[in-house]
C-alpha cells in the first residue's frame, strides 16, 4: 500500500508545486499590494461598505477593507477560497478515474493489492497534498503579512483568526475533495471540467446565498459557509449545522466512493 501511496505522491508532485506556488504567490502578491493601495483604501472602504448586497456578499459591510485583516479577508479570501477549492477538486476528481482513462487499471489491479487499499492510498495522497498545499500557502501569506506589518504603521493581522481561517479552508478543501473523489470512483473518464465547475458552483452558491435573503437559511449546505473569510475575521463562529454538514458530506462521499468502486466492473 505504501508504494501505491508513494507513487501517487510522486506523480502529483508537479501539480502540487504549481498550484501551491500559483495560489500562494497570487495571495502573497495581493498582500504586498496592500502597502501601495493603503493610501486610497479609506475612501474605497467607505464606498465598498455601502454597496448593499454586494458588500454583504464579499463581507465588506462587516469588515473594513482599509484594515489589513479586512483587506486579507476580501482579497486573499477570494483568491485562496477559489484557488484552493479548484486544486482540491482537480486532484480528487482524477485520482481514481485516471486509472481507467489511462488504461493503467489492468496493470495496477493485476498486482496483489485490493481495490480498498488502492483507494485508501489515493485518499491519503489527497489529504497529504491538501495539507502541504495549505502549509505552503500559509507560509507565503505569513511572509507577506510580516512584510506589511513591518512596513505599514498600525497594520496588524490577528494570528488566531488567520490560523483559524486557513484551517477552515483546509476542511473545506477536504469536503470538496471528498465529493470529487466519489465522482471519480463512479467515473471512467477524466472529469476535470466537472471538478472545476463543482468548485465554482459551490463558491457562487455561497456568494449568492449571502446576497439573496431567502437563501441565507440554506447557506450551511455549502462548504464555503464555515470557511467564509469575512465571518472568520469578524470573529463570527461557524454554525454547528454547517460543520456537521461538512463532516456528514465528507463521510458519506468517501463511503460511497469505497462502496461503489469495490462493486463495479473495471474498464480495460
Amino acid at each position: 500500500m505504501k508504494y501505491v501511496f508513494a507513487k501517487e505522491i510522486k506523480m502529483n508532485m508537479k501539480s502540487l508545486i504549481i498550484w501551491s506556488l500559483s495560489v500562494g504567490g497570487l495571495g502573497l502578491f495581493c498582500i504586498i499590494l496592500y502597502q501601495s493601495m493603503q493610501g486610497d483604501m479609506k475612501e474605497m472602504a467607505d464606498a465598498f461598505s455601502n454597496m448593499g448586497a454586494f458588500s454583504d456578499a464579499f463581507g465588506m459591510s462587516t469588515l473594513s477593507i482599509a484594515s489589513l485583516k479586512g483587506y486579507f479577508a476580501t482579497e486573499v479570501g477570494a483568491v485562496h477560497g477559489l484557488g484552493s477549492a479548484m486544486f482540491a477538486a482537480v486532484i480528487a476528481i482524477n485520482m481514481i478515474s485516471k486509472e481507467e482513462e489511462g488504461h493503467t487499471g489492468e496493470f495496477l489491479f493485476a498486482l496483489p493489492v485490493s481495490r480498498m487499499k488502492v483507494l485508501i492510498s489515493k485518499a491519503l495522497c489527497i489529504i497529504v497534498m491538501l495539507v502541504v498545499f495549505t502549509v505552503i500557502c500559509t507560509g507565503m501569506y505569513y511572509v507577506g503579512i510580516n512584510i506589511i506589518e513591518a512596513n505599514v504603521k498600525g497594520a496588524e493581522m490577528p494570528a488566531g483568526e488567520f490560523i483559524r481561517y486557513m484551517m477552515m479552508q483546509l476542511l473545506m478543501n477536504l469536503e470538496i475533495a471528498a465529493i470529487c473523489y466519489a465522482i471519480s470512483a463512479a467515473s471512467r473518464r477524466s472529469s476535470m471540467g466537472l471538478g472545476i465547475g463543482m468548485a465554482l458552483i459551490l463558491y457562487f452558491y455561497d456568494l449568492i446565498g449571502r446576497v439573496v435573503p431567502d437563501l441565507k437559511d440554506y447557506l450551511f449546505i455549502g462548504p464555503y459557509s464555515y470557511a467564509n473569510a469575512s465571518e472568520i475575521f469578524s470573529g463570527i463562529e461557524a454554525s454547528t449545522g454547517s460543520l456537521m454538514m461538512a463532516v456528514v458530506v465528507t463521510i458519506v462521499m468517501m463511503g460511497f466512493a469505497f462502496w461503489y468502486y469495490d462493486r463495479r466492473d473495471l474498464a480495460s
Binding site: G102, H103, T104, E106, F107, A110, L111, P112, V113, S268
Partner: peptide, 17 residues
C-alpha cells in the same frame, strides 16, 4: 489477493504510467 500473488497477467494492450 492471494491468487494474484501467484499469477502473472499480461493484458492485450500494455499500458503503464
Amino acid at each position: 489477493n492471494e491468487i494474484l500473488k501467484n499469477v502473472g497477467y499480461m493484458p492485450s494492450e500494455a499500458w503503464f504510467y
